[in-house]
Design a protein around this nucleic acid. Structure first.
Lengths: 344, 344
DNA sequence: ATTAGCATTCAAAAAAGTGGAGTGCTAGAG
DNA sequence: CTCTAGCACTCCACTTTTTTGAATGCTAAT
């Protein structure tokens, strides 16, 4: 990073001070806290210019300054500390990988928890999307004489199951036939295409199986489970510590409602490894006064998870981005290693 | 229910009025709203007596009356409307069962959502406990040459799985042997005893399998998943509509923290079908100023789920209890039916 | 350019004032 | 003995006013 000029230094300090204290920053207090070699009047005139340029705002005519969205944006792009991560977080993330053979999902989940805790923000985890996986096998296991459980496994080891209770009208036999046909005809099919494919072999099923309508519907239902979002939220309690929420119940309400709703988060689809959305940069209208920092977690080519941190625009971007980058890298490395293991 | 005397009638009205409005109830407004054939002075003296008896409280010397915990308790036990359920809730619960062959877990989950919505409270669902189920089969499915997924199925159709990535040092063969031994030796074992049993056959594994330590540990980990609590929370947003939370952030904080923590809820273990805990009657110190109404959902002898509704002590007990009882009965009936189906 | 000084602004906190819904008590009517 | 009308009193919740202090912008001097 090149040397910063005075305006930039001041902007950086104001952002960081405001992030820390949540109070508008005045010229005087800034000098006091950081022992700046200027008088308050000088800072004031710099602040006035920064305001004219659009990087700062005032809450009222005689208040201190607060970063504008544009100010945050500039801070994130050009002023923030890079690779900012404290040892505590580092250690905790390292500890994640100490156990051998831990599942990717668990890694993401715990990583999410750790970062949520360290940043005091709420985090949302999106489990890997199964659409690109292929159905590899359907297995039927009888439980009693009148019920059985069907297991569906993808080539990446994602498992779903469905219990069939078998009325007299459906023979266990029929179910077995059905599973056999499914294995013959659709194993190897991408999850995203399974439903279509099953539809296309409906006639075959109809021939082989008496109560095919009922069974057919049940199988479709089971396949739908693969495409359901796997979303988890961590650190809900943290948002209650943020003054912007405790003083504004409506804001809180909107966010909590959003967190109840699972389906919103996938849309932070960016190809960037880390995506920072400040205020209304994000497309979700309900939280156009909040910021979201999200990280793609790639653990193999077609399979991504995602971690998103949500909080007030006044959040510690350096810390959040630093932690996410570190986790992301650690996961990358871990999976590269295990790829290597396999290749050995 | 026998005829209520005047004191009881007044207490009932006060509870219901306060539940509705969240405002202390005064003698005057009570008469106005319900056209009582007494003067305010009469009501006042009755109120004073009810207060002396411990059923009512004042928030300050000249305020209206508020039910005491004892007042709520008396209301729940002796005054509330029985079988109180509105048509809307009824319909929604009925609709749950319209689809044939729906899984118990789904029923409980949706039931939970419905009741949460109808009562404007937050609900917690505890999925059925697997401890009493028996492990019925372990199945290994190879994914690639270096990985496989192991599936574990109980006699009630509960499925867990674990992915093994296989370093050179462990042959796929070993894993297969291992699974075979497990199937031979522990299928039929209760989940609660599986870990012990696996420990006891450790020597056998050690003989048959080279890297038995690693595999052994991995299997234990997988078995642990069965005993993990399956907890879901619904209607978190609802608590933000309750004035007792919005005016008291600390209360809100405690509850949200509690809801983050999965492991607390099983302790509402009562043999009663419906269990009402008012204020500090419940054993969780963090919420000794809230009430919890929980219902056991039995869907077969050893297998219970649970639904708990959490809210301020000022909650509509009639409605909550009514809805839970109705849901409970509906589920009972549904499962009795399907038992019958099987016996046919 | 920078700074000291000064008048000005405004929010937030403290203090003071009001209104109203509530109570308890008492004496008299039914 | 039960009920009620009336009255004095209490106290919260609300509004208004005052005070305070941290900030600003501007200007003249360095």
């Amino acid at each position: 990073m090149q040397e910063l000029n005075r305006k930039q230094r001041i902007l950086k300090l104001i952002v960081e001070e405001f992030v820390r204290t949540a109070e508008p920053v005045g010229s005087h207090s800034l000098i006091d806290k950081y022992n700046l070699p200027y008088s308050s009047a000088t800072i004031r005139s710099e602040m006035a210019e920064l305001e004219n340029l659009g990087y700062l705002e005032k809450t009222h005519t005689s208040s201190g300054r607060v970063p504008s969205p544009m100010g945050y944006r500039y801070y994130v792009d050009s002023l923030r500390e890079k690779n900012c991560i404290d040892d505590d977080t580092k250690e905790k993330i390292q500890a994640l990988f100490s156990q051998k053979d831990i599942q990717i999902n668990e890694v993401i989940k715990h990583g999410c928890e750790i970062i949520s805790q360290m940043t005091n923000l709420t985090s949302v985890m999106l489990g890997p999307d199964s659409n690109e996986e292929c159905l590899s096998k359907v297995q039927l296991m009888p439980l009693t004489s009148t019920s059985a459980v069907a297991l569906f496994v993808t080539d990446r080891g994602h498992v779903e199951h469905k219990i069939f209770s078998i009325p007299d009208s459906i023979a266990m036999n029929d179910l077995e036939n059905c599973v056999e046909i499914l294995n013959d005809r659709i194993s190897g099919t991408k999850i995203s295409q399974v439903v279509d494919k099953v539809n296309s072999i409906k006639p075959i099923l109809a021939d082989a199986v008496k109560q095919h309508e009922v069974i057919f519907k049940a199988f479709l239902e089971a396949f739908l489970k693969f495409t359901a979002e796997r979303v988890s939220v961590f650190g809900r309690a943290n948002i209650l510590e943020q003054p912007e929420f405790t003083s504004n119940l409506n804001k809180l309400r909107k966010l909590v409602n959003l967190l109840e709703n699972q389906d919103v988060w996938r849309q932070f689809d960016s190809n960037d490894d880390i995506c920072v959305m400040i205020g209304d940069e994000n497309t979700i209208a309900e939280i156009d006064d909040l910021s979201v920092v999200s990280a793609n977690i790639h653990f193999d080519k077609n399979n991504n998870g995602k971690i998103a941190l949500i909080g007030p625009t006044r959040m510690d971007y350096s810390k959040v981005i630093g932690a996410l980058e570190y986790l992301q890298e650690a996961i990358d490395e871990y999976f590269k290693e295990s790829e290597d293991d396999k290749d050995e």
